[in-house]
Simulated scan of single mutants.
Amino acid sequence: MTSSELDGPRLAPAAGGAPKQLVVFLHGYGADGNDLIALGKEWAPLLPHAAFVSPHAPEPCAMAPMGRQWFDLSMGDMSIIAEGVKRAAPALDSFLDAELERQGLTSQSLALVGFSQGTMMALAVGLTRQAKPTAIVGYSGALATMEGLPAPGQGPAILLVHGDMDEVIPVDAMILAREALGQAGLSVQWHVSRGIGHGIDGDGLRLGGEFLKQAFAAAGTAD
């Protein structure tokens, strides 16, 4: 799978002109890029100079014929998930490089936002890229692998958000990810959305947008 085969809906900066930041949404299992691109419209007031793109995952989803998957999903075996992430990573990595070049931006201006399986991809790729993104926001996901983590203090800013009533990926997965990344010396913020299942509520959406705005400002790519 090559970067040229990954594509999806895009939103230009609300303020017009060339973008100063690039936010890439990574959708969950059985969905496609259209599932998350509307978040860009919600965040446009906070990030008026950001371009948004939400690529469709590379594989058709066996369990949801109209949807896509980054890799075949078997939540009962994390080793299978880790291998799936590794197989899907090169295509996403190449897509990010190509998209940054297309927009005339560097990785300091890049943020990855994942949901569920997309969070697994955002963490795996975002933490192992040679030129790491400024920020990663992960909703309702998990940490699939600890391989190739950056040195303490060298990684992107990370925000993990999870519903405490999540019936697909239990909130414990977020807690385990937070602890593992923290022990590796990475900066992790987190939020538990009370009474929320496998989804994103208003508080989680607001926190994600504010987190990205702050991360871009800290990286010197603010509006």
Rank of each mutant, 00 (worst) to 15 (best):
A44W: 00
A44P: 12
A44K: 12
A44F: 10
P45C: 08
L46D: 13
A50F: 07
A50P: 08
A51S: 13
P55G: 07
H56V: 12
P58T: 12
P60H: 06
C61K: 09
M63A: 08
G67K: 04
W70L: 10
D72E: 15
D72T: 15
M75L: 15
M78I: 10
S79H: 00
S79C: 00
I80T: 11
I80F: 03
I80Y: 00
I81V: 15
A82G: 07
G84I: 06
K86F: 00
K86E: 14
A88P: 07
A88H: 08
A91H: 14
D93M: 01
D93W: 01
S94C: 06
A98E: 15
L100D: 10
L100V: 11
T106Y: 00
Q108I: 03
S109N: 14
S109L: 03
L110Q: 12
L110K: 10
A111D: 11
V113Q: 09
V113I: 11
S116T: 13
S116K: 00
Q117F: 07
Q117E: 13
G118I: 08
M120P: 02
M121F: 05
M121T: 02
A122W: 07
L123P: 05
A124P: 06
V125W: 04
G126C: 05
L127W: 04
T128E: 00
R129S: 05
A131C: 04
A131N: 14
K132I: 07
K132P: 01
K132S: 02
S140C: 15
G141E: 02
A142F: 08
A142L: 13
L143F: 06
L143E: 02
A144G: 13
T145R: 11
M146E: 14
M146Y: 02
A151R: 10
A151K: 14
G155N: 06
G155A: 09
I158D: 10
L160D: 08
V161R: 06
H162P: 01
G163H: 07
E167N: 03
V168E: 15
V168A: 04
I169W: 01
A173G: 01
A173P: 00
M174Y: 09
I175S: 14
I175N: 11
A177F: 03
A180I: 08
G182A: 06
G182Q: 07
Q183G: 01
A184V: 07
A184C: 13
